[in-house]
Amino acid sequence: MDTEALRSFVRAADLGQVGHAAAELGVTQQAVSKRVAGLERELGVHLFTRTARGVELTLDGQAFLPHARAVVTGVDRAVAAVRPGSRALRVDVLGLRSAQAVVLHDYWRSHPGTRLDVVTLKVEDPLLAAVAVESGEVDASFRTVIDRSALPRGVRMVHAFDSPLELLVGPRHPLAAARRLTPSRLREHRIWVPGITPRSEWAEFYHQLATDFDLRIDAAGPNFGNEVLQDTLADSPDVATLVGARDRYTWPAHHDLRRIPIAEPTIAYPLSLLHPDANPHPGLRPVVDHLRGLPCLPGDTWRPSWAPDPDPDPDDTTRK
């Protein structure tokens, strides 16, 4: 059944004038009349009677109107659900306590009314996140594909921001009283990062970090979540871990955990944003501008060799 014919019928019934319905729909009066006539032939009933004042619904027309209106409303909602300009911007983050989620929350708070849908794809391989962007499952993803040549043809990767790392320790750890630490002071200390997934961007990050600074990063054991990790740190005199300065963590007050900044150099985890190369969601451009307005890290910052270029790209398609 022709949905435009249904729409013409509904508007003519609401307005009582075929001419008024035509003007509102942006078509000729003849077009509306033909649509309604075709609908009547398909149904085998008369929907209107013509009067000197316009049109009036027949009994069949009265019975048909609420159903026709429901179909038209459903079609409009279906179109709105997939139209980039009217649906929420859907962005994938690594976790809802991650730096990406925190930064997106800051953006949302400073832009009231923004329609934003923050999700976490259940994938470890960043290439799978890139495929989700390509397919339209999400509009953007905070993941880094280290081998740019492996990116799907329709996906672009840009630098989002750098997240400085901090050492997280319990009160019995030898470094617990430090106000600030250099990477060299982390040597010989066990840095426990359970659950590092092979082929993930963070696996490559920690491998290069350990190599460049001669650190002992231990990924042994299953990952039972942040709460179990924090319990271990609170009771341990020798276990530490690394967390992002913007990552949101909470723990019981009696744990007395300490977050200690790392400097000279600052260790930065580079975060990238994957988005479609053509026709990105209109809501993405303001988010990218917000990311580029974040404070820069010090000049003596360590980033892995594969980190995307942090300089703004004037040819970024999100500016369209």
Rank of each mutant, 00 (worst) to 15 (best):
M1L: 06
T3I: 10
A5Y: 04
L6S: 02
V10K: 06
R11T: 02
R11C: 02
A12V: 07
Q17W: 08
V18R: 07
L25Y: 04
L25W: 07
V27F: 02
Q29A: 13
V36L: 13
L39W: 07
E40N: 10
R41H: 11
F48S: 01
T51F: 05
H67L: 14
H67T: 06
H67E: 08
H67P: 00
A68S: 08
V72E: 03
T73Y: 08
T73F: 08
T73V: 14
G74Y: 02
G74E: 03
D76F: 10
R77K: 11
R77T: 01
A78S: 08
A81E: 04
V91F: 12
L96A: 01
R97G: 14
Y107W: 15
S110N: 09
P112Y: 12
T114Q: 08
T114M: 12
L116V: 05
L116Q: 12
D117H: 14
V119K: 04
K122N: 10
E124K: 07
P126Q: 07
L128I: 05
L128K: 11
A130G: 13
A130V: 10
V133H: 10
E137T: 15
D139M: 10
A140R: 09
R143Y: 12
T144A: 04
I146G: 09
D147G: 11
S149L: 15
S149E: 14
R153P: 03
V158Q: 05
H159K: 02
L165V: 05
V169S: 13
A176W: 13
L181M: 11
L181P: 13
L181I: 11
S184P: 00
R185V: 03
L186A: 08
R187K: 12
E188F: 14
E188I: 00
W192F: 14
W192I: 07
Y206G: 06
Q208P: 05
A210V: 03
F213P: 08
F213R: 07
R216H: 15
D218L: 07
A219H: 12
F224D: 12
V228D: 13
Q230G: 02
D235P: 00
P237M: 13
L242I: 13
G244S: 13
A245N: 03
R246I: 00
R246G: 01
R248T: 00
T250C: 05
A253W: 00
H254G: 01
R258F: 07
R259I: 13
A263F: 03
I267L: 15
I267S: 04
L273F: 09
N279K: 02
P280M: 05
P280S: 03
G283P: 14
G283T: 09
V287M: 05
V287A: 04
V287T: 05
R292V: 01
G293K: 00
L294Q: 06
L294H: 02
P295Y: 06
P295D: 06
C296Q: 13
W302M: 04
D309F: 13
P310F: 14
P310S: 10
P310C: 12
P310N: 08
D311G: 12
P314W: 09
D315N: 10
T318V: 15
R319T: 10
